[in-house]
């Protein structure tokens, strides 16, 4: 191994370490849900209290169901209902979105395991 080889290996190890620190986390239960309509965060709710939330989106109202520390879409004015089929979300970092209605939810809190940004 030459000096340059060693530098590459050390840099690669650092990169892998950083990736582990950033993205590798056990699935921890989330503490709260963040609701977005378009780019704006319209509300945050803790997951420990059950409730139903209406979120006004571009096409209409999406309905979210928060229960037992989980959240799911139960109604949305879209065609494919991808958001509803996403089902229950419970772990920090998970997300679901109704793209036609521009409404999305992401779970936050817990210990960490949170994304800085998620691109759809």
């Amino acid at each position: 191994m030459t000096v340059a080889d060693r530098i590459v290996v050390v840099a690669a190890s650092l990169l892998v370490g950083i990736l582990f620190a950033r993205y590798w986390g056990p699935a921890v239960p989330a503490a709260a849900v963040e609701l977005r309509s378009g780019r704006e965060v319209v509300a945050r709710y803790p997951l420990d209290r059950d409730r139903r939330v209406d979120v006004q989106g571009r096409l209409g109202v999406s309905v979210l169901d928060i229960r037992d520390g989980r959240v799911r879409f139960i109604a949305s004015p879209c065609r494919n209902k991808v958001c509803i089929h996403a089902g229950w979300l419970r772990h920090s970092g998970e997300a679901a979105a109704c793209l036609p209605n521009r409404v999305s939810v992401s779970l936050i809190g817990g210990v960490e395991a949170e994304f800085d940004a998620v691109a759809f």
């Binding site: 191994m1 030459t2 000096v3 340059a4 080889d5 060693r6 530098i7 590459v8 290996v9």
Partner: peptide
């Protein structure tokens, strides 16, 4: 290219292999 420019700090098989694999 690196090896062409910096012959004294050239990469050999392990370094190139790690680069390529990543």
């Amino acid at each position: 290219l690196w090896n062409r420019g910096l012959r004294r700090a050239a990469l050999s098989a392990p370094g190139l292999s790690v680069l390529a694999a990543l």
